[in-house]
Simulated scan of single mutants.
Amino acid sequence: MAEVNQEIPKEVDGKGKFIRQGNRFSTPFGDGEGELPVEAGRYRLIWSEICPWAHRTVIVRRVLGLEDVISLGTVAPLRPKIERVDWEFALDEGNKDPILGIQYLSEIYLNTEPDYEGRPTVPVVVDLKEQKVVNNDYFRLTNYFETAWKPFHKEGAPNLYPEHLREEIDELSEVIYHEVNNGVYKCGFARSQEAYEESYDILFARLDQLEERLSTNRFLFGDYITDADVRLYTTLARFDVAYYNAFKCNRNMIVDFPNLWGYLRDLYQTPGFGDTTNFEAIKIHYHLSNHIASNDQKGETILPKGPNNIDYNAPHNRETISGKKEKFLV
């Protein structure tokens, strides 16, 4: 979820640190009082291929077999050239989502809450019956797909959020969010040298620790992919083609970390991961968006040709760590 220049000051503190806005719509899915009912065909998930938060919901949706249960709408990788911060359905015929019938994502947010003043963000779940936003809680949405939506999982769907590991998964996911997922944004959107260097040091210290952790674990929690791996993957996949240059996260590329690089390839080659990763869209957004490209460069922006020597399909040999061919706990 990349921000535009006129909005960034609202999310920067007095020391120049980037503070991401909170989620307005966070009602959980479930069968309890006040929770969102779990019904096939009732909801539409809106995402952007460039957004790491949205990407992880699409990965989990596919891995668990929810594609025929929750429909999917896609906004374009570039922000529309309009006065406000928005996403546009420019990839669809007539520049409108075929189900919602809207051109801009803000339309459904404002239809839900006419005085809504925040950025319209992805991922967002829209209730088609009510024609309103019901959840844009990117931090918990995959967990709802993994638990509340279990009755609709495909036969043999993996367990990405096993009960005996949930506390540990949540703890590590919290760290990964602050120091890596959002850490790259803290570097890219810092408005002081001090804030940038602090975020940069925290980011790479955590990547160094994850590199060590993955030297003896195929995945973050051992032999099988969990929700935590999905969360880390979407940032690692964008790192070398976008964050390294666009956000000045340039101490190392992921290809420079033997274990992280092998781990990234292992996940990329897993159905649901690589086949939902659009590197071209990612590059276009982070390098050509008028609010990010070339650090406030005015006029024409340039899309880098590289990196073009990264082979995400190269053998990774990570299965030798686990001794197992299967990657999922069923």
Rank of each mutant, 00 (worst) to 15 (best):
F239V: 05
K10S: 10
T226Y: 02
G16V: 15
G34M: 05
I254Y: 01
T121F: 00
Y196C: 13
I176S: 01
D240S: 05
P77T: 12
H316P: 06
R61W: 00
V330F: 14
N290A: 15
P98K: 06
N136S: 04
P80M: 10
P271Y: 10
S289K: 11
E7M: 15
N295Y: 14
E113W: 06
V122R: 04
R213E: 09
N317A: 07
I59R: 07
A157P: 09
D13M: 06
Y43L: 09
E211G: 07
L260T: 02
G272Y: 04
I202D: 09
L264P: 00
K283I: 01
E117R: 06
Y177D: 02
T276L: 09
N111P: 14
Q131L: 09
D311H: 12
A157V: 08
D137R: 00
A76I: 12
G156L: 11
E146Q: 08
D97Y: 04
L64I: 02
Y312S: 02
P271G: 07
I70H: 03
A281W: 04
L165S: 04
D208R: 03
Y144T: 08
T147V: 15
V133C: 01
A228R: 01
G118D: 07
A228Y: 03
Y224S: 13
S215H: 14
I310S: 11
G306T: 05
Q209F: 13
G323D: 06
R206G: 12
E198S: 13
A190E: 07
Y312L: 07
R42I: 12
M1R: 15
G272W: 04
L267F: 03
M1N: 13
D223N: 15
L45I: 07
K305G: 13
I59C: 10
E212P: 08
K15M: 14
V85G: 13
Y185F: 10
I99M: 03
T235R: 02
Y263W: 15
H55G: 01
G183M: 10
E7W: 15
V63A: 01
S215I: 15
D275Y: 08
F219H: 08
P151W: 13
I310Q: 11
V75G: 00
L165Y: 05
S173T: 06
N217R: 12
G65K: 06
E113G: 06
R56M: 05
G323T: 03
E300N: 14
R24F: 05
I108M: 01
P315I: 04
T74A: 06
C51K: 00
E93C: 13
P315K: 12
V63Y: 00
G30I: 00
G22R: 13
M253R: 13
S106F: 03
I70N: 03
D296W: 13
L260W: 00
R44V: 10
I46P: 00
R231C: 12
L45T: 01
N313W: 12
Q21C: 14
A54K: 00
F25L: 05
Y43V: 07
H178Q: 11
C51T: 00
E83F: 07
C51A: 01
Y224H: 14
G41Q: 10
L78I: 08
K325H: 13
G299F: 06
L203V: 14
Y268S: 05
G183A: 08
L288P: 10
I202Y: 10
Y109I: 04
